[in-house]
Design a protein around this nucleic acid. Structure first.
Lengths: 329, 329
DNA sequence: ATGAAAGCGCTAACAT
DNA sequence: ATGTTAGCGCTTTCAT
């Protein structure tokens, strides 16, 4: 049985209130009694019961985090940054994983609310006005990361669209004339929240438009994109770039091209997105887009805590990216 | 303001006790009043206050997880498995990261205890009898994973030693005669808990002993192992294997050998450990050891919950591994 | 400076 | 079947 304030009070021959004053060094207590109480508390290895504290204070100093999973490196890094920043600010973090199941996500939100978290960081698979109303029905602060759920909801993310647009610019400058875009998640368009993937796609399309090339962009949304590319004839007279919405797809493509004996970068180039850490072990080194994922986590926590403690979210501008020059372009 | 049991009671003209009976469908309540109450509860979007429940029940249905970080893929996968299994059993998970700081780890434990978690899963950086006594001073169940803290503490892990021993056997069968072992974490031997790394090392040494080769094993514990290997003369008449305690080191070694123009696998082979998912993008394909990391997380949760709910840990045998044949040996 | 009492929201034992 | 009461461990207000 853990020792309680009452125990200490009994032993010291004082009331619970006085013990409380000593432990939380509140004013109105004699220095000596305070010392006596603290000594006993220490001897008995007293630890405050946070649950009781939370109940009376109406605050748990806990954040809920909702992610798809931790298999994706980016999510893991995001989570890592969130935990660090949160605890730095005296908050603990509940982690909940939805596996991209919209109902599971709702389930998570409701559980977190029941557990009285002070705020939620949400990487959402749901989206739209109805979902926005649903979120509003819980009156606790919720901040979204990466995937916007609607235009106005508080959000921390990066300039995805501009990043992909710049990537296209880079490719055009390098002399590429034909473009294939690979992004299997686009298959879920209209079904689940794939905001970031959509943004990247639009960036790609806008990029092409701005240079007035390839009116009909080639977009591969199929899960078996490798099979599709397997049949592709890369020996055209055009210098072709395969632009991928994530590094993992790009790595698969690189591997395929190696198998097909296509020289990279030669007639064909490959562009990734994310700059995952394992790229350094792969040759040719993939050209990709880097963005400060840990910053997103950290900023989201800061903004959320600001909302919790001072009732206003921080105004966090979209974070910037950087094109990492490799050898695949 | 969230709606409370009292609100419902007032509206329905009954007592809080009756509302409680309705909501938690406990016996001793008229079907009609029950229906009436549930209807109102639903209309008002009533959600039980978990903090209050926890306080009175003396149980939070929460597990604490303590890990180094989530940058390491294995840790992330472990965490993923833990969350899934925990919530499947009605538990939520606090994630806390220590960054391998022993004091931070203690801090985490104490905070988790204060927050009345029902149990803790600990990937420990501390170890030894003193630490064991420290852990015992909290009377909540704590289960360790991967790193043992002492011989008797409840633990879920894999047959690391045997795995590495088998790896050596495999190498000997493939005709390797000379062995270099790479494991920078060994530098922390005696300082922090590197149980798994030690086990792998002993497995390596035992393996060599059993074949009576290389009395003086070559062990590189330096952080700059690459610099050391850079100076190495791999052109000896002996077929040499570089055995690495983690895939990441092996990948670095592979890259170095590529740079040095050493043919792999020819005179030199490289062996990894972990089978991280990105191996499939690297050529030559690394030969490595695979183990069921998600199973460890899942088993740890099961055992811990068994202890919480039925007062006995499960008896989980050390999990098995598998040598994955690549092209680097 | 200290004690007593009420209350956070809920559950559970005891009355009626 | 329903109401009443006490209490989980702590904080806070009001007396003294």
């Amino acid at each position: 049985m853990p020792v309680k304030i009452k125990d200490i009070a009994r032993i010291c021959g004082v009331s619970a209130g006085t013990v409380d004053r000593a432990i939380n060094n509140r004013p109105g207590i004699n220095e000596n009694t305070k010392k006596r109480i603290l000594k006993v508390a220490k001897e008995l290895n007293y630890r405050p019961n946070y649950t009781a504290q939370s109940l009376v204070k109406g605050k748990t100093s806990t954040l809920g985090v909702i992610l798809f999973d931790l298999h994706n490196r980016s999510f893991a890094q995001l989570m890592n940054a969130i935990e660090l920043k949160a605890r730095e600010n005296g908050y603990f973090v509940y982690i909940t994983l939805t596996d991209k199941d919209p109902n599971n996500e709702k389930q998570c939100i409701e559980y977190l609310v029941e557990r009285n978290v002070d705020g939620i960081i949400l990487f959402s698979v749901n989206r739209g006005n109805e979902f926005e109303d649903y979120l509003k029905s819980f009156d606790i602060p919720i901040i979204t990361v990466f995937n916007k759920i609607s235009e106005n909801w508080d959000y921390v993310g990066i300039r995805e669209r501009q990043a992909m647009k710049d990537a296209v610019t880079h490719l055009v400058n390098k002399g590429y004339e034909r473009f294939i875009y690979v992004s299997p998640p686009l298959m879920y368009m209209g079904k689940t929240n794939i905001y970031t993937q959509e943004e990247r796609l639009y960036g790609f399309i806008e990029g092409l438009k701005s240079f007035n090339i390839q009116e009909e962009p080639i977009i591969i949304k199929e899960k078996n994109y490798i099979d599709i590319l397997k049949e592709w004839n890369f020996q055209s007279e055009y210098k072709t770039a395969v632009v991928c919405s994530c590094d993992l797809y790009a790595l698969e493509v690189l591997q395929l091209l190696k198998e097909k004996g296509v020289n990279v970068p030669g007639n064909v180039g490959v562009m990734g997105f994310d700059n995952i850490d394992v790229l350094k072990y792969v040759t040719p080194r993939l050209t990709t887009v880097e963005y400060p994922i840990e910053q997103i986590g950290s900023d989201a926590v800061e903004s959320l805590i600001s909302k919790i403690e001072h009732d206003h979210f921080l105004n966090i501008p979209l974070l910037d990216y950087k094109i990492i020059l490799g050898e695949s372009i």
